[in-house]
Design a binder for these strands. Structure first.
Lengths: 222, 222
DNA sequence: AAGGAAATCAGTAATTTACTGATAACAGAA
DNA sequence: TTCTGTTATCAGTAAATTACTGATTTCCTT
């Protein structure tokens, strides 16, 4: 019986490692790497041109972070399963990534066979977490995905609000943001007020915290 | 004419990537990966048992960091050339590593051919830096390791200034920072002014950018 | 002893934010 | 179709924050 290979797109800003990873995956009889991208924006461009079964994504990439990238992929309605492969063992990253729409999460410390398992699992449409304490997390995550709105108010934000949030977190003043976005200071000010309301903040620093947590502050290229 | 292969030991705590890297290197006719280690201590153990021409070392590893590892290798008198392969583009890391005794420094963002070049160069006993502006660095490093200051303005900052920078980048106001650090707003204001001077900024957003770039904004746990 | 950072604070002018409204467009509910 | 809620947009004024210009003390180095 003929079974077609799992088509995989890789996204990682570490070129050498991505090349190695490609070799590793192509060595397996049932995998095939069909595309590579070095940051979130390039992933999106690539997805416009070609589809694949699985996207293996690093979270820390320049320009557009992995998390933002996941959200954008979802909002554009691309039909691709996302497997996060990253160095961050932090629970928060796992949560954020899964909430944003990832199907699997594997740390780079994992051995190759674990990654293979993860790919095959995710390919079937099933969740995969690489962690020891993963089960807890999965349960938490799955048994009560109801209070989604409160959990992730991010989905409540309008496009403009998100935009303003990013600039604010990077330390721009209302005035500066207004100039960049061609808006009156007053308008930007309103967005800020809304952000505070929606995200339940009383201080600007809490907004920054929120932005950090949600991967809205990737380091930009020089 | 027969030429023996360059024997390489890999050290990286990211197992998947190390496996990929091994494949990549073994694919080259003149390289041969003869050992792997997942942290500094294991590198040292391995070196007691086997020698090799080159050690490709990640800087961020658990237990014993890459830098410590380099120092220890040198102090034990092992005869192996060290090539650092890491994600850190920061000049300081380069310097530290080279001072500690590394012969080459390549960032993971580099493409495979660059890594190959680096290996071959280092194998000849020559220095290799992967940077565009590397040559400057080499010269600085070797001719006058004295004027550390201008190179990295971060080292110019006083403890207080760094502290204030972190809070500022996280979106706290002068007033808030003053409260946390038990200082007058005025004092904090002065630090801010100094920061701007030292880091050559005219806007707060540039300070935030600087902080981001230098990893001063880690995501905190919940 | 002189020179030079570092840490600390003040006063006032100039900006920026906070807060309170407001209007127009549009989508969905009733 | 009318009502309601959401988004996008802007204004005015009071309150708060920052920018700028000094200044003092301590400590370290030469």
């Amino acid at each position: 019986m003929y079974t077609s290979k799992v088509k995989i797109i890789l996204a990682d800003d570490h070129a050498v490692l991505m090349t190695g990873l490609r070799l590793l995956l192509n060595n397996e009889p049932d995998f095939e790497v069909t595309g590579e991208a070095s940051d979130g924006e390039k992933v999106l461009e690539l997805l416009e041109k070609q589809s694949a079964d699985i996207l293996i994504l690093d979270l820390s990439m320049p320009n557009m972070s992995g998390l933002e990238c996941i959200r954008e992929i979802k909002s554009r309605g691309h039909d691709i399963k996302i497997l996060v492969l990253t160095m961050y063992e932090d629970e928060n990253y796992v949560k954020e990534a899964m909430r944003a729409g990832a199907l699997g999460y594997v740390v780079k410390q994992a051995v190759d066979t674990e990654l293979f398992d993860a790919i095959r699992t995710v390919d079937k449409g099933l969740r995969y977490l690489s962690f020891h304490n993963a089960q807890l997390l999965i349960n938490n995550l799955l048994t009560e995905p109801s209070r989604k709105a409160e959990d992730d108010p991010y989905s409540l934000l309008s496009a403009r609000e998100r935009e303003v949030l990013k600039y604010m977190a990077r330390g721009h003043s209302m005035k500066q943001i207004g100039e960049v976005l061609c808006l009156s200071v007053k308008t930007v000010d309103t967005y800020k007020t809304r952000l505070m309301e929606k995200l339940n903040c009383t201080q600007k620093s809490q907004l920054v915290e929120y932005a950090l947590r949600h991967g809205l502050l990737p380091v930009k290229n020089m």
